[in-house]
Design a protein around this nucleic acid. Structure first.
Length: 78
DNA sequence: GTTGAGCGTT
């Protein structure tokens, strides 16, 4: 199950993003998209969960969650 | 050194 997480604070690191999801199950892949202009993140990334049900739970639990004072968005990716 | 909906860079 591939997930996309939007509206992340640009200050958030790749490791921080992984920590949000790994509590729900095993992550097989993840990456935070970086911006060439600023060198910081573009504010969104992808997460690949091994178990689909755990991925769905991660979505329901993390979507709208406040991270660094900001509400994030989590959906299934293409 | 900023930005704020979205489906990808080292």
């Amino acid at each position: 199950m591939k997930l996309i997480v939007l509206n992340l604070p640009r200050s958030l690191s790749e490791a921080d993003m992984a920590n949000l999801f790994k509590t729900f199950g095993e992550i097989t892949a993840f990456n935070l998209v970086m911006d060439d202009e600023t060198g910081s993140s573009k504010g969104f990334g992808f997460v690949e969960m091994k178990n689909g049900e755990e991925a769905e739970k991660a979505i329901e639990d993390l979507h709208g969650k406040k991270i660094e004072g900001r509400r994030i968005r989590v959906k299934t990716a293409h």
